[in-house]
Amino acid sequence: MGARPIIQVENLSHTYMKGTPLEHVALKGANLYVEEGECIAIIGHTGSGKSTLIQHFNGLMRPESGKVIIDGVDLSKKKVDVKTLRQKVGLVFQNPEDQIFEKIIGDDIAYGPFKLGLPLKEVRERVKWAMSVVGLDFEQMKDRQTFALSGGQKRKVALAGILALKPKILVLDEPTAGLDPKSRNELLEKIKRLNREEKLTVIFVSHNMEEVAMLADRIYVMAGGKDVLCGTPKEIFTDKEKLQLHHIGTPETVQVLYRLTDLGYKVSVDAFSISEATEEIIKVLHGTKEDLEDVQRV
């Protein structure tokens, strides 16, 4: 670990509705660190505490016990400048409806930048830019009503509203759930570019292992309110024992490669994208064809 991490979580616990009969422990001693400019994926089963964990990053939830330090600011302290924190950390909820308040799409996306006190022209530019990132046509959609949207369109509006804030740290909860294939691929490309070129720090929760493999520098695996495993996509997806132990899924490509390995094919499972996996299979097919010819010659 080089520089000071931009996010540092130590031994974080959280209990919902504490002290009531409905009390429920969601986090029990979670740890995580993120360096500036990293892209981090958080994966894990339904109910493992992913959404609860990331809602601590912009101060929506305060550490009940343990530590959360964001860019040097200790959130367990009483006095935290939440406004500055929210400007720095943009969080998109798992449920976009929790995030859309204005009647008109354009107004909703403009709300954040407007509150920052930016000049109108700049606000408009940002709205345009954010809508293009998520694939919403500015002219066609800006005056449409927010309640009258499809599921995927709502997610796009919620994402755009946070992107328009141009946060230093972008936190996304299931950013591509409900997006069609083209919207999903384009959004991922754009997030990747923002991360690689503009050094935006990205933390995203996902059930989609394709996008985890494509985007993440490192992956945290959550289980039972704790981080149980952390590593690069290569470290995680090529470790069969750990995958089985923690019941972690893999990209479809890797799943195919594992099956071929089990059948005795000498393919490397370290080929996540469609094109890499295809190459890998072509390689063994060439190999076996040659073997075949050798055999026949003998």
Binding site: D180, P181, K182, I274, T278
Partner: peptide, 25 residues
């Protein structure tokens, strides 16, 4: 499908790639 912003399954995409090298695939 691509024009409709959709795609084919991963395995179909892989099969297509292999087919370019091995026309019988």
């Amino acid at each position: 499908l691509k024009n409709l912003q959709l795609e084919v399954p991963s395995v179909s995409q892989m099969a297509e790639g292999i087919h370019q090298q091995f026309p019988d695939f």
